[in-house]
């Protein structure tokens, strides 16, 4: 009896969790983080924007994410894709509270974190987030009200 109840509860939890994950996976969210420097990343920032991807060796969607971000960075001038091995940069993982891979941070030209996504983002969402990053940077710090 306890076994059947456990089975039912597990399946219900699985369906709910699966639907929530499917909905939230890869969604670009607005976040508050301190600005990131090239020294932090150990890589140059893009002139206009940087797509920072946290990956691990045991991450299924990281490869597809790498492809998407690489394509977008190749498409838009002044945008760089920087992939970080989460395991060897636990300092950054803790600083940005990365719980899952891939986690993607979208930085503007000044290194401000404009958007963030956990899970594989869709290409269209990356392009929209990038638009926000490039716009925000071009207005400069004199108009901070422009930022969402």
């Amino acid at each position: 009896m306890a076994g059947i109840a456990t089975l039912m509860a597990t399946l219900v939890l699985g369906v709910v969790l699966g639907l929530v994950l499917r909905r939230r996976d890869g969604r670009m969210r607005v976040v508050e983080h301190a600005p990131v420097t090239s020294g932090d990343l150990g890589a140059d920032l893009g002139e206009r924007a940087t797509l920072v991807q946290f990956s691990t060796a045991f991450c299924q969607p990281c490869r597809a994410t790498r492809r998407i971000l690489g394509e977008v960075a190749g498409m838009v001038p002044g945008v760089r894709h920087v992939e970080i091995d989460a395991e060897s940069r636990l300092d950054l993982v803790r600083r940005f509270d990365v719980l899952r891979t891939p986690t993607v941070l979208v930085l503007d030209g000044a290194g401000n974190v404009v958007k963030r996504a956990s899970g594989q983002p869709r290409k269209a969402d990356v392009i929209v987030a990038l638009g926000a990053a490039v716009d925000g940077a071009s207005h400069g710090p004199s108009q901070p009200s422009d930022k969402v």
Partner: peptide
């Protein structure tokens, strides 16, 4: 179940969580 029904690898996600519990190491 999450893997079969949704293609989501929960086991894979535990990797970073386990590594996070270990003392920090910088490059």
């Amino acid at each position: 179940f999450l893997n079969a029904a949704f293609g989501f690898c929960l086991g894979c996600e535990t990797y970073l969580l386990i590594r996070r519990l270990q003392p920090g190491r910088i490059q």
